[in-house]
Amino acid sequence: MEGPSSVRKGAWSKCEDDLLRACVQLYGEGKWHLVPQRAGLNRCRKSCRLRWLNYLKPNIKRGDFSEDEVDMMIRMHKLLGNRWSLIAGRLPGRTSNDVKNYWNTYMRRKVYSHKKDNNVEKQADEAKSTVQRHQVIKPIPRALTKTAPRLQGKLFNSSKVGVSEAAGAASSGSGNWWETLLENKKDNHEGNIINNTCFFGGADGELDLWDEELNPIACDFLSEGENWSDFLLDL
């Protein structure tokens, strides 16, 4: 058995690269402890594995990191810290070595400075200045039960009174949104515009149908209110 001192170190030659590439093509990745022997390389298995994963693998991307990649790297580093293999896993074609080197070369000193177009860059600067303290409130959800049968008549005959009672029964202490919403009903009714133009109707008959469908909207607010109440009573 060869002694440790005879294992080659240092830069890989083209010949060695070719041997390693051929071996992985033939046997696939993995079983790195067998690769030096199979490939005829005088290298330790770790060295073979790293050479393949960081340099020879065909899908490895060369060239500068793109804007997208840098942005993703920043976000992932914020989430994961210096876990380069996890970060590289989200950057197709980039190795953990590339990510680590890029970060330590460009990012660590500049603390998250990176290219963006002018508008976004300006807004990004604002992002830092707007990190702020404020309280996050967790409201307690209430699930209102169905309106009690005894209230149904009142609710639909007189919306105002009905809602007040329902609010009182269902949610004592805070029924504001019920009342204010209903108070706005009248205002919302203004601006109700009828538009009889129909794009979809092909035949004249269907066009007439469209007009007929729109006619009920022409009723005044009280009639509309009554109609809605009738609709609800049938449920």
């Binding site: 409130i137 409201p139 307690i140 959800p141 209430r142 699930a143 209102l144 949610s171 805070s174 504001n176 949104w177």
Partner: peptide, 8 residues
Amino acid sequence: RDKEHSTI
């Protein structure tokens, strides 16, 4: 006006 509650 009532941030302590929500209604489902």
